[in-house]
Design a binder for these strands. Structure first.
Lengths: 209, 209
DNA sequence: TGGTATCTTAACCATATGGTTAAACCAAAT
DNA sequence: ATTTGGTTTAACCATATGGTTAAGATACCA
């Protein structure tokens, strides 16, 4: 039987457990494909309590989305916002953080992308104004490096798109990559582990003047 | 009113229209989020006829998936299988075809990826054995180029993953890219249009020894 | 003219699903 | 001892959805 008031610190609060469960289930099946009953089960709780805390499935979905986006975006913008970082170090650090993140949360990226695809309005609450200055700062650093002859000239847009492509796509396309290349679980994990280095190298090489 | 037997060649057969409509709707909302009623509406047809031709939603979904995958994969493997193509030309051709494809079918890639994420078993019917020889042939070409000093040595896996990353991610992450970079519809389209060239250049530069 | 394949209308059913409620239970705090 | 907040049980409702059916149009073909 399940204790009504669980000992604090031993077991997460029911609200937290529900949120975690929702996270799991939504990431696995997408918002539309997810069943609230499965979330309740996964949380070791009943639907009534889910309703008690979150009201509707949509509200839960919103909470999970915000939480997921809030965990993901800093992985990039955190590093971009750090001052006094050489370009190479910045790239390497983003790569490492990204790979680590996606290995820890294998389904998060595809969830986010699928979600903003079917419900782009979700994006509006994100990033917003405070992300823009970071972009111009990065562009400045790129221009400086180009002027110094370290790299070729490149617009921030392409820079970021190229970098994120190399880091995110392989995990977003996980089943496709595994199937096409005929990789087993272990082999794929090895490829992923090597990604930070490979992507960094490839990316920086692609920027040589 | 709608004519029961439409003139051939003027209007697609109802079966085709249903398949097209299903394609649209599934790509827009994903299999789980799609409503058969909306498919029927989009096809200018009623649910009964959908059932008449395809039986179940799942069967329709399967048909659409196969069709989508069957349209996408040749964009890559077609070029990979072409004999007597210099490496640079091969890359450039894949890039052009990919960009053209994704501009014509903006939602297809994210649909495919999301779909194989929630239902990886769908993959089993794809590519299969006949794709493997293509990979070894490509690896051979890569080895030869590396030996000739044209490029650095690189495993096919990384080669393909890097290339596809640069080409597919920007369209899969369309809403995210647009939002983060603050691009309007037109600006994003311009970025996409420039992708074939940018990706090809960046990719080949990244392979220099 | 009659037959046939295609397609529509208008129901209808069973089920899953999201949502809601009332009552009771239990442990900790007071 | 009582209160209180967290939680369960066990219903229940309304709706959406996938699926199905029977009867009848409609146009083309033989």
């Amino acid at each position: 039987m399940r204790q009504p008031r669980p000992a604090p610190d031993v077991e997460a609060s029911a609200r937290e457990r529900i949120l975690d469960a929702a996270h799991q289930v939504f990431l696995r099946w997408g918002t539309a494909g997810a069943r609230t009953q499965e979330i309740a089960d996964e949380a070791g709780v009943n639907k009534a309590l889910v309703h008690y805390y979150f009201g509707t499935k949509d509200a839960l979905a919103e909470a999970v989305f915000q939480r997921a986006a809030g965990a993901f975006l800093p992985t990039i913008f955190g590093v971009l916002a750090a001052p006094d970082l050489a370009l190479e170090a910045r790239v390497a650090q983003i790569a490492e953080r990204q790979v680590a993140f996606h290995r820890a949360h294998p389904y998060l990226a595809i969830y986010l992308l699928a979600e903003v695809h079917t419900a782009p309005e979700r994006l509006e609450a994100l990033v917003g104004r405070h992300g823009r200055p970071v972009l111009s700062a990065l562009q400045a650093q790129l221009d400086a490096a180009a002027a110094a002859g370290t790299i070729r000239a490149i617009p921030v847009a392409d820079f970021l798109v190229n970098l994120m492509s190399l880091l995110v796509f392989p995990v977003v396309a996980r089943p496709m990559v595994r199937h096409v290349l005929g990789l087993g679980e272990a082999e794929y994990e090895r490829l992923l582990a090597a990604r930070a280095a490979e992507a960094t190298r490839f990316f920086l090489d692609g920027l040589r003047p």
